[in-house]
Amino acid sequence: MMPDYTGRTTDGSPFDLGDHTEGTVVINVWGSWCGPCREEAPELVAAARSLPDARFLGIDVQDSETNARAFEKEFGIPYPSVLDPTSQLAGRLTDAVSPPVTLVAVDGHVRTQILGATNAEQIACAVREAEAA
């Protein structure tokens, strides 16, 4: 079950994890300082376009707001990311030691987890798996 969490997104708007308990949500944990996150960023952008039924959400960990925005701008990330500078939220969702991590949640339950840099195909696959489970 998804934990309760409220915060702020990189563009300054309020964020509530409770708004993400319905349908399929692809959650990507990232940081602007993280090399593999840069590597997978274009793939996530592609996946977000090719999976219109899934909502995408980023969790930006151990990062500053300015650096995060510069990253989003560089790659043209189309979905919002919540600021998580202390990685508290990421810690509640995954045991992973460092980003990137990609999770697929269906109706508020995290069903699959991809550790390390991923690609659009893998994400699509994980979404199908999660929805079938």
Binding site: Q62, S87, A90, G91, V97
Partner: peptide
């Protein structure tokens, strides 16, 4: 500044 005890915030974990 704050630091929260989670795996991702620990260096050389």
């Amino acid at each position: 500044r704050e630091w929260v005890e989670t795996p991702m915030s620990i260096i050389q974990y």
